[in-house]
Design a protein around this nucleic acid. Structure first.
Lengths: 370, 370
DNA sequence: TGCACTTTGGCAACAGCGTTGCTTAAGTGG
DNA sequence: CCACTTAAGCAACGCTGTTGCCAAAGTGCA
């Protein structure tokens, strides 16, 4: 990748920055002068940038603040329906599709049965149909653009090339160029990523901060998504987030992966025998490892297994993290919360895979504007 | 922090990029056209940028390549003695100071006895004297600028403010503003960071790639430094790299930190009873966890304990990582090597804390050019 | 030796970025 | 009603990388 920057890149960078602040400000909006303070740009530059954004229909004026002795500040806000993105969550037995607007609000949701073991053509047809359905359903006006499709699915894959690897349990997909195939079927740009990454991105963007963030997903397996510095950390091979098979018990009980003492094995074994407290304690130990290693600011739990006993998992994980923080003499502990909405966060995050680059939240490789 | 970019920022960004490629190219140099290809800038832009760098004395022409049918390419290289930085490693009983040139070559090294438990004024005086000594000793010509001092030391601290926390074993330092104090004593800009971070940065910059990188330091304690995307990952509170007290054995033997089954406790216990193979296996398990979680490209081991049995540790760690890679079906395993030179890498990396921002390798907060 | 061709790299003009200086708009308070 | 304050835009400007063009410096063949 290049890294060299020219004037259009500069312009795009600053526009993304302003757009992200508008997104974070939400319906409440933000004044030009605060944008200037937050970006470090001069007020005049912000005026020019917001004028362009307004001309493109991405931003609009929305009232004014109270005067502080002079002309009152004009409030700007994002125009949510200036553009949309489709998010797909391809799970083992189910396909969830959402249409999200620029503000990240889900304006349409649909669920379809799916068999990931079926031939690629069938899966592709289902996915393309789902895209068409939510596109038709969600937009208030037909002429608004749809920027693309984000597809999230389990198992290893390569985000850069959009090619799948050995999706767990479905070896047939190994080497399948899902991104290009889906792009051809839908006529839209497509981004693919792991389900945990998508969920982590979506949940991180919901917040108003740029804090470092970890999402732990406990369902039929255990995985993690990491958002560092406001953008997904995928690693060179999209392999980051391999959390379930971290060794947490040297020479512990065997795991189906061939290893021993993996977090996933310990956690699911405890959950399987109904010992939620122990499962939460194991998960907490892994989470605390992660928090310490990366100096994470916030941990969010999700997935079906967690959803069944939300309070118990949050309490258990929080207890371990707080205890370790106390040992290290840190006063402020890392907050632990749970992602509501079952599996929806994955599909919503998948849509954010497309939208995030507009706000400068792309991962390592900088995505272009459509 | 801001993030807004203007023309000087653009210019600085591109200059850093070119300077970094020149640094990586080393004595061999690199042609203008290859710089253009690698940065994505036009050849004309590279010509202008390199002309400025040559005018500033940072770059110089160095011969030409063989012709490929037309005018041969002119090779450019970094001028190593265009500037220097001092690196300090404040260890518990010893102070190592180095003077490094722009290319990262150490041109002077000195070691002084030090008692970290002594009053701050004494420690400061020793450090300032060490800085003066290597400054006087190393530079070929007196008029070359020294950009600043990087100070690396154990224990938690805040990189941004330059304030120490509870340096392990020396609680007196808690809250001491080392950066500002040392800046006043030396008259130079100062950067402070953890010893493991400094070592990781220095070792990462030695390589020609921008791969994600982990440095594991096993001495009297066990810590890690992480370089992600070419720059140090410190976390919001400079707390990242807390590797020694990762739980690796749930409910395992107690650790002096108050926890149980920490990697450090397991590893040092094995090393203490002479079981190097077991210590290496434990370290390997932790390293494999880290590699999987972050999709790390390369692991380097260092520290006095490792230095005593380099081959055994490298073999042991490599074995665990390779076994896990095999389980996951990954063909190319992550290389594991050892950092030579005892504790010198820490002091050399400390100098890089000052130099890295010139090459766009600063951490989250973008450092300015002097 | 001479000429056609290829490739490198700089000069000059240019479009477009944020910045600066100043003006206009739109409030508050006496 | 007027002085004052604050917000926001217009115009000119400096500087960025880009584009179009040309000189420099090689190779290869006649």
């Amino acid at each position: 990748m290049s890294g060299g920057a020219n004037l259009p890149a500069l312009r795009h960078h600053n526009a993304s920055l302003v757009l992200d602040l508008l997104r974070v400000a939400g319906e409440q909006g933000i004044s030009r002068l605060e944008l200037a303070e937050r970006t470090g740009l001069t007020p005049q530059a912000v005026s020019k940038i917001t004028a362009r954004l307004r001309a493109e229909g991405l931003a609009a004026e929305a009232g004014r603040l109270a005067s502080t002795g002079g002309k009152p500040r004009t409030v700007l806000r994002l125009v949510p329906d200036a553009g949309y993105a489709v998010g797909l969550h391809l799970d083992r037995d189910e396909l969830t599709a959402v249409l999200a607007d620029l503000a990240g609000t889900t304006v349409a949701t649909r669920t379809f049965p799916l068999d990931l073991g079926a031939p690629a053509a069938d899966v592709l047809a289902t996915a393309a149909h789902a895209v068409q359905t939510v596109r038709a359903e969600g937009r208030r006006t037909e002429d608004r653009p749809v920027f693309g499709v984000g597809a999230a699915l389990p198992g290893p894959l390569d985000h850069r090339s959009g090619v799948l690897h050995r999706v767990t349990g479905f070896p047939r997909w190994d080497g399948y160029p899902l991104r290009d195939a889906l792009a051809e079927h839908t006529g839209l740009p497509v981004v693919v990523d792991k389900d945990t990454n998508a969920a982590a991105l979506g949940l991180a963007l919901r917040e108003r901060t740029e804090a470092d963030f970890a999402y732990l997903h406990l369902g039929t397996g255990l995985g993690a998504g990491l958002v560092l510095g406001g953008a997904l950390h995928r690693g060179a091979r999209t392999g980051a987030g391999e959390f379930g098979h971290q060794t947490l018990q040297l020479d512990g009980p065997p795991c189906h992966c061939g290893g021993r003492g993996c977090i996933e094995a310990l956690c699911l074994a405890a959950a399987g025998r109904g010992d939620v407290a122990e499962a939460a304690r194991v998960l907490g130990a892994g989470a605390a490892n992660l928090v310490g290693l990366l100096d994470i600011d916030r941990v969010v739990l999700g997935g079906r297994t967690v959803a069944a006993h939300e309070d118990a998992y949050v309490r258990g994980v929080r207890a371990v993290i707080e205890e370790r923080a106390r040992r290290e003499g840190v006063t402020a502990s890392v907050p632990v919360t749970v992602a509501g909405g079952g599996d929806r966060p994955v599909a919503e995050g998948a849509a954010q895979l497309v939208l995030a680059p507009l706000f400068g939240r792309a991962g390592e490789d900088g995505g272009e504007r459509g």
